[in-house]
């Protein structure tokens, strides 16, 4: 058997991890939480509304270690955020007491 090169192995491991992370996202639960909290009034997956698209947010945080922490802060503390029209508004605080539900929503956003 031909030995696997370290580079290929790293690639496979990375792919597997990415795959497991994506598979872990509960799409329906994330959408339901988002809908319940009116997230989609201001955000869409692939187009700019009052706020940036989820694809834009995911791209912005791609590869950044503090992505989850920063999005968590937006969703749980309601800081002032800059809207696409240049004005500012307090971000909506997501109404859930379930940290897993919140983490799932963040993972869903980051996987767009």
């Amino acid at each position: 058997m031909k030995p696997t090169t370290p580079l290929l192995l790293a690639g496979l491991i990375s792919l597997a991890l990415a795959g497991s992370a994506l598979a872990a996202v509960d799409d329906q639960a994330a959408k339901a939480l988002g809908k319940r909290n009116d997230c989609f009034k201001c955000h869409a997956v692939d187009k700019t509304k009052k706020g940036p698209s989820y694809q834009k947010i995911a791209a912005k945080f791609k590869g950044k270690a503090d992505a989850e922490e920063k999005i968590m802060k937006n969703l749980t503390t309601g800081p002032k955020v800059k809207l696409e029209d240049g004005t500012e508004e307090d971000h909506k605080i997501i109404d859930t007491k379930d940290p897993k539900e919140l983490k799932n929503l963040i993972d869903w956003i980051l996987s767009r």
């Binding site: 869409a44 009052k50 909506k92």
Partner: peptide
């Protein structure tokens, strides 16, 4: 009309916010 009064006064369309899946049904 939470977080939308400014936009409505500005003349934005209703569906600039209410365009999500099943918006009308919900």
């Amino acid at each position: 009309h939470k977080n939308a009064a400014k936009e409505v006064k500005r003349g934005d369309s209703c569906v600039s916010c209410h365009d999500e899946e099943d918006a009308e049904k919900d």
